[in-house]
Structure formats: C-alpha cells, structure tokens
C-alpha cells in the first residue's frame, strides 16, 4: 500500500477521525464546563480556603502544557495500575484543562457584573444562591459567550494532542494515512482544511456574538 494514491477510502478514514475529534471536543467541553462552573463558584466563594484551593488549581493547570497533563493521566496513572482507554485519558485531561480556563473566564465575567447588583439583591432579602442564579449569571452569561466560544475553538484544536496517546482522532488518522502513502503535503493539508471547517464557523459565531454584546453594552451603560 506504500506509495499508493489518495483514495476516497482514505478520505472517509479522515472523516471518521474528524468525527472523533468532534466527540472528544464535546466531551472536553461538557465535562470541562461542568467542572469549570465548579471552579468559578470556588474562585468567587466567600470562604477564603475555597478561593485559595481553586486559585492553586487554576495556576497549576494554566502553567502546565496540556501535553504533560495528558502524559500524566495516560502513562502516569498506568504505572500505578489505573489503565484508562485513550479516549477516556484524553477526555479527562481535556476536562481538567478546560475547567481551569473556563472557570477563570467565567469568574471574570461574574466579577464584571457590578457589585451594586449583589447589594441590591441582598437588600431584597435574596440569598446568595438566588442572587447568583436570577441576577448575576444571566448578566454574566451575555458577557461570557464570546470568550467561551473562542475557547471552544482552542479546545478543538488542542484535541490533536490526544494523538500522542494513540487516540485516533483527525491528526492521528492523518498520520496513519500518511505513513502508508507518504504524501504529507496532501494528507496534512486535507486534515488542516477539515480542522478549519470545524473551527472557522465557531470563530465567526464568536465574533458575531461579540458584536451583539457591544450593542447590549451601549444600552446597559
């Protein structure tokens, strides 16, 4: 098969890899979003200890390459007898990674809602949780949407790192095809186009959300 031509079957193989890229991204985003919400709650908590713990967590994750995180989860846990399948290892790593970044993005959005909104709610006898759910989060969500979607684009591209633990997503699929055909320019070019096809619509969406937000800002001021 070495040196053969790029066929439709190769393309289908790449598309299957692309599907796994989407699955992994979705996994990272959903799990990372849930955990990130927790991180955001801890970072804005009234208890100092919770704030400190979450601060250290965020700093550790943000100061470590995702690749290292992936190695620790996949190979590190393997050494102590916890064997994770590549999808799970990659999913867990990306979840941890996303939770730190999303938690920090969302903390900023929550804190950008004026303190006086908390005060007004407090004066109406609303609890802290009621205030968060009914008053703060709806306002923070509008601010949070563009950077959140922007981060989704980054996560999607970062899933390519999962190829190093043998998970066959788009990048790994392209490597496999290239190993048999040795037409790197063509194969990786197609992989690049497929990544672009996934990310570009999201980037556009993020930008249009940003524009919409600016309109809202002008009215809210």
């Amino acid at each position: 098969m070495m040196g053969g031509a790029f066929t439709f079957n190769h393309f289908v193989y790449l598309l299957q890899g692309m599907m796994w890229t989407v699955v992994l991204s979705a996994l990272a985003f959903v799990l990372g979003g849930v955990a990130g919400f927790g991180v955001m709650l801890m970072r804005t908590a009234r208890t100092r200890l919770l704030r400190q713990i979450s601060f250290v967590f965020v700093q550790l994750v943000q100061g470590t390459p995702l690749l290292i995180l992936l190695f620790v989860v996949y190979f590190g846990l393997g050494v102590v007898g916890i064997e994770l399948p590549p999808l799970l290892a990659a999913g867990v790593s990306l979840m941890v990674y996303s939770s730190a970044f999303l938690g920090e993005i969302w903390r900023g959005c929550v804190e950008s809602v004026p303190r006086t909104q908390w005060e007004a709610s407090e004066c109406l006898a609303l609890t802290r949780w009621q205030t968060l759910v009914d008053v703060i989060l709806p306002q923070a969500a509008r601010i949070a949407t563009p950077p959140t979607v922007g981060f989704l684009v980054q996560v999607m591209k970062s899933t390519s790192l999962a190829s190093v633990v043998g998970f066959v997503e788009l990048t790994r699929a392209a490597q496999v095809v290239n190993n048999s055909l040795f037409t790197p320019f063509l194969v990786f070019g197609i992989a690049g186009v497929l990544y672009f096809a996934l990310c570009y619509p999201l980037s556009r969406w993020s930008r249009s959300l940003e524009r919409k937000l600016n309109v809202g800002r002008r009215q809210a001021a």
């Binding site: 006086t116 909104q117 007004a120 004066c123 006898a125 008053v135 709806p138």
Partner: peptide, 20 residues
C-alpha cells in the same frame, strides 16, 4: 440577615435595577 432585609427596604443613588 434575611429577616432584617425583609423589614427594611433600600433605594440607591444608582437605581440598581436588574437590566436583564
């Protein structure tokens, strides 16, 4: 605190309505 706040209303200089 919440019992106190139910008995005492407050209005601010900056209105502080919920914009959404």
């Amino acid at each position: 605190l919440r019992a106190l706040r139910q008995d005492v209303g407050m209005v601010f200089q900056s209105y502080n309505l919920f914009p959404h």
